[in-house]
C-alpha cells in the first residue's frame, strides 16, 4: 500500500512540475524580466484579447509587441509590484485547475489551451459574479491593452496617435538635467528661451509626433 502511495506521490509531483515549468520553449533572451513561461503566458493572453486580423487593427497582441512592452513595464516597477504582476500571470495560467475551459481538455494550463478556449476562459473571468475574479481579469486586460496601445501602428489605425508638438525652453530647463544626468548635461542656454515656438491650439489632423509616423 505504501508503495502505491509513493508511486502516486511521485507521479503527482512529476505532473505538477511538468505543468508548472515544462513545455514552454525558449523565450526571448533579450527580455530583462519575463521568464520564458511568463512570456508564453503574456503572448497567449495578448493574442486572446487582440487576435490577428480585422481591418484597421490587423495586428495581434503579440504582433504589436505586447510581450516586449510588458517586459519593459515590469522592468520599470518596484520589486514588490513585479511580484504582484508575476502572481497575476501565474494565477491565470493555472486557474484552469479550478475554473476549467470548455471541453474535455479544458483543465490544461492557459497556454496549452486552444485560442477559442483561451477566449472562453477570459470571458468567464470578465463576466464572473465574483468581484475578485472580475478585478483579476481587469488587471490582466489593463496590462495587455496598454501594451497593445503602445504600438504606433495600432494608435495610427485608431486615429489616436499623438500629435507633433515642440516643447518651448523655459527657466526650469536651465535648472534640471535629464533624469540620472549631472547638471552639466543641461544643453540649453538662456538664449534658447527666446526661440519662437508655435503656441496655437493643435490641429487634430496635423502632423503626428515623429515617433508615431508611418516611417518612424
Amino acid at each position: 500500500m505504501s508503495l502505491l502511495w509513493t508511486f502516486l506521490g511521485i507521479a503527482f509531483a512529476g505532473w505538477a512540475v511538468a505543468r508548472l515549468f515544462l513545455g514552454y520553449g525558449a523565450g526571448d533572451p533579450a527580455l530583462r524580466q519575463l521568464a520564458s513561461r511568463e512570456q508564453a503566458f503574456v503572448r497567449a493572453a495578448a493574442d486572446a484579447v487582440f487576435p490577428s486580423g480585422g481591418g484597421a487593427l490587423a495586428l495581434s497582441g503579440s504582433e504589436a509587441g505586447a510581450v516586449a512592452h510588458v517586459d519593459r513595464y515590469v522592468d520599470s516597477l518596484s520589486p514588490r509590484s513585479r511580484v504582484l504582476i508575476r502572481l497575476l500571470f501565474f494565477l491565470l495560467e493555472h486557474a484552469t485547475l479550478v475554473f476549467p475551459a470548455p471541453g474535455w481538455d479544458g483543465i490544461r494550463r492557459f497556454t496549452k489551451l486552444s485560442p477559442a478556449q483561451r477566449v472562453a476562459v477570459l470571458d468567464a473571468w470578465q463576466r464572473s459574479p465574483l468581484a475578485v475574479r472580475r478585478t483579476v481579469f481587469q488587471s490582466l486586460r489593463a496590462i495587455v491593452t496598454m501594451a497593445y496601445f503602445a504600438n504606433a501602428t495600432v494608435l495610427r489605425g485608431m486615429g489616436l496617435a499623438p500629435l507633433e508638438m515642440e516643447s518651448p525652453v523655459i527657466d526650469a530647463d536651465l535648472l534640471y538635467p535629464p533624469i540620472g544626468r549631472p547638471k552639466s548635461a543641461i544643453r540649453f542656454t538662456p538664449a534658447d528661451r527666446e526661440r519662437t515656438i508655435v503656441r496655437a491650439p493643435l490641429d487634430p489632423h496635423g502632423p503626428l509626433d515623429p515617433a508615431y509616423r508611418e516611417n518612424a
Partner: peptide, 9 residues
C-alpha cells in the same frame, strides 16, 4: 474580447 473588442476600439 477578441475581434468584437477590436471592432469596438
Amino acid at each position: 474580447l477578441g475581434h468584437p473588442l477590436k471592432q469596438a476600439l
